[in-house]
Design a binder for these strands. Structure first.
Lengths: 145, 145
DNA sequence: GTGCCACTTCAAGTCGACTTGAGGTCAAGA
DNA sequence: TCTTGACCTCAAGTCGACTTGAAGTGGCAC
């Protein structure tokens, strides 16, 4: 494992230095020391950042991700939480699949407005059953680079 | 189609009146008039709200959803946009599926910390390939009701 | 030894999607 | 007629995840 300063981590991960500092403050990553003022990281931080990005893409908050990194406390609750999250993801995936199919159809069909296409609306209606009051978590919205 | 006042719409859709006003302001829904001060909606608004909720769950912003409701302008770009969105959803779905599988495994496996389970990490690594600098849109986070 | 400047800290700002609060209005019941 | 209270408007606040700006610091090239 090489040591990397914050600029190298930022460059190799695509995560801005400001975000790296923020993650450190939140306890999601840890620097292994300083070189003068500058944070120095173990290169293992890159994998951790990839995992964080993935978790965020899956809709977890930073606090939830921090919990997953935490070394085995609350054993039962933790596992239940994980299973519950998996179930939630399953429901999300089903909705997203329906939405994707609806979009594909809308892109190909010729109704004057997409919402006027009966096929599109039927698909959405199916997907939306019970979804009106739905709650979901956020995923990041960042430009690459 | 019955007419509903804002309180009835809120109650039947699960969307708070404040959010309904906000959506109207944004042009996502429209009231068909007033009864005194009170907004009156056509009951068709309920389907529209379901569609909006679904779009949000799929990661679209309110502005993007408004575009989808818009009556057929920019014909080609619009359809390209839809197809692009569908592709983006596909990528998202793949990531989410990997994440879900990873979580299911982690919930069942006995590594001291989930991030130390090799299976979990392999799954995540596969899913994360090229995902570090990824960008995604937000979905709502609301309690039902 | 002295400048440079990428880094540092800390506070404040931003963005989307709403919510909340203050102060106002009006249809309906007593 | 008067009161009630759910609705109204408009401005400001909230939340998560960062970003931005101002002011400071210190390793390294010269």
């Amino acid at each position: 494992m090489r040591n990397l300063d914050i600029a190298e981590v930022a460059q190799q991960s695509g995560v801005p230095a400001s975000a790296l500092r923020f993650y450190e403050e939140k306890g999601l990553i840890a620097s292994i020391g300083r070189r003068g003022l500058r944070r120095v990281f173990d290169s293992g931080v890159l994998e951790r950042l990839a995992l964080i990005a993935l978790g965020r893409a899956a809709g977890f908050s930073l606090d939830e991700i921090a919990l997953m990194f935490a070394p085995e406390r609350r054993p039962r609750i933790d596992r239940q939480m994980l299973a519950a999250k998996a179930d939630e993801l399953d429901r999300t995936i089903r909705k997203l699949s329906a939405m994707r199919d609806g979009l594909r159809h809308a892109a190909a069909c010729s109704a004057p407005s997409h919402m006027e296409c009966p096929t599109f609306r039927r698909m959405l209606r199916a997907a939306a059953s019970g979804a009106v009051g739905a709650r979901r978590k956020k995923a990041p919205s960042r430009q690459p680079g």
